[in-house]
Nucleic acid binder design. Structure first.
Lengths: 336, 336
DNA sequence: ATGAAAGCGCTAACAG
DNA sequence: CTGTTAGCGCTTTCAT
């Protein structure tokens, strides 16, 4: 890799001038500028970002820590972030926490060494602690909130979403509705659970705690929990299921199939997050859809905004809305 | 961020000793080492990787350029790469080319400035040209090959996979089989097309060029092409479709549904790539599955191996195998 | 408008 | 075993 000295030498100027010609063209005589530019082109010169960042104390880099890049929802978040970062000339360091505290800790540590100017993170249980080590880095929390009151957060209105999904089931006539909820130490799970409860209450329906069970957001959890709920004696078994995230919904659908339950005749299902398979599965799934890509894009716009001004007042809390998409996995309960 | 000088000062040693205590503990007296370590802990010291990399000329960073992170197949590749990189203490710079030459060019350019020690790339049409600017960076081509004979490549046996998928359709009794093939300037598409042809030929079946149409790997392409093929007059319309990638298969399935064709009774479909929706859709899809995660993992292992030795002989060409998973989207053609 | 020189934070010679 | 010194490539004063 040629250095700026070689470019300077070839153009018969000092490295200072070469640097200026490249980054502040207006400070340099047109003729000189041309010579430098052509020398750079000729040598295939590419500035060494490490050196530049070291000198300027500015890396034009941001960190992104997502919970699980294989889950299409999180994948879309990541894409939204990347596209916007790219547009503004920032480079993204992407890490996966896989929902594990320890991985998150390591990701943050590695990231720190690379001196990102900002961090976008989907918090886990331990994020609050981990972020304490990050003196005064601009942080945007995405999708979930860690509880840190100083953080800017970009989320979806989970409460309203869950309420809408549950209400839809109630309107179909269901009274025994089960929920497979996420980990209750994560904000999204808490809010969706709350929305579920609120909808029941508004309708004057009782909340059956034994029909509400937690899972760790994975397909197997959905499968296991659904298997249990759907194997209850007919009288107590739920006629509808509201599932707290996309992966667990897959598990629930497979469990229902395995038990020979027809959807929606024997069981109605509403999932959270839309996805490719929700549209192609049979029957197409009714879901509470989230604007995943936009969520990521907005988070990144905000972060970059934050970088512009030093300490601009209060942290923002942006909340995007969800959309209930009614397909064919929901219908009235079978007559008793 | 505290620098190593502050740590050194607090521990009453020179910065050189502090550096050694941190990176080469055996070179330093145990007592000193302890003092330095504790000072570092106390200050929350984290080495500045930029400075270190600049000094050592070694960034312990690799670049990864995937075609489309939102496609789960590519997502799995990325995860495989990342997990392995992580295990070896490398950090990954992830970029998306979105199958666009121009984005790929920009990604490579940006990457260069960050001085990655190696690059893993899913080549596009123009990769060969773009890589010329990368003097002597270790490069591993993933999933596809660019045609550069000096590159190490990690691929799947697309020829055998496509052959197996096609043969399966032939065994079911199909004689008019259509194919939706990818862009024919990408190696995987070429090989799958060839495998398709070979299977026909081995079975003594004619190749109908009018039943083989290209798409750009997206859902809409699959939809559009399938719509066309399936709208042909009954006598000439294919009774089975072999589709060259996962996204296009979605489109083909939706097109079939829209035309009221029952799968597999009116139409058999074999897709390339397994996925979540292939398993949950109705009916579950017969596919040629690829070990995506492993592909990424192997690529990264290879790259890191390459970094160990300087110029180790010939480039490797690893080929993993595919697996035909027979589900329920394939069956005998309807009797005429 | 240009050049000389300093310094970002780190580590590798080289001395001692 | 430890300190001094130099330099990775870049940009930015400060002169001129």
């Amino acid at each position: 890799m040629p250095s700026i000295h070689e470019v300077a030498h070839l153009a018969n100027v000092s490295s200072a001038t070469a640097s200026r010609a490249l980054s502040r063209p207006e400070m340099v005589a047109p003729a000189t500028r041309e010579r430098v530019l052509s020398a750079a082109r000729q040598l295939g010169y590419q500035p060494n970002i490490l050196a530049r960042s070291l000198r300027q104390g500015e890396t034009r880099t941001i960190g992104l820590i997502v919970a699980d890049i294989l889950n299409p929802f999180h994948g879309q978040l990541a894409k939204g972030v990347q596209d916007v970062a790219d547009k503004h000339g920032y480079t993204v360091f992407l890490f996966n926490s896989d929902e594990e505290s320890e991985k998150e800790r390591r990701a943050i540590e590695t990231l720190r060494g690379h001196l990102p100017q900002g961090l976008i993170i989907e918090p886990t249980r331990s994020t609050r602690d981990h972020l304490k080590t990050l003196s005064n880095l601009a942080v945007v929390e995405l999708d979930r909130v860690s509880g840190n009151p100083k953080a800017t957060t970009i989320t979806v209105d989970n409460l309203a979403g869950a309420k809408a999904g549950t209400r839809h089931l109630i309107e179909q006539g269901h009274t025994r509705i089960g929920m497979i909820v996420g980990q209750l130490d994560i904000s999204t799970a808490i809010e969706r659970h709350r929305g579920f409860q609120d909808a029941l209450q508004e309708a004057g329906l009782p909340y059956h705690p034994e029909l509400v069970l937690p899972g760790h957001h994975r397909e197997d959890d959905g499968y296991r929990v659904a298997k249990h709920l759907l194997s209850l004696p007919k009288a107590t078994r739920p006629t509808a299921l509201f599932v707290g995230n996309n992966e667990m919904t897959v598990g629930a659908v497979l469990a229902a199939r395995e038990l020979g339950l027809q959807i929606p005749d024997d069981l109605s299902i509403v999932g959270f997050d839309d996805s490719r398979w929700a549209q192609t599965m049979y029957p197409p799934l009714t879901v509470v859809a989230q604007p995943a890509y936009e969520l990521g894009a907005v988070a990144c716009e905000h972060l970059i905004g934050l970088l512009g001004r030093p300490q601009s007042g209060l942290p923002a809390h942006v909340q995007l809305s969800t959309e209930l998409i009614i397909r064919q996995s929901t219908g009235p309960p079978a007559p008793a």
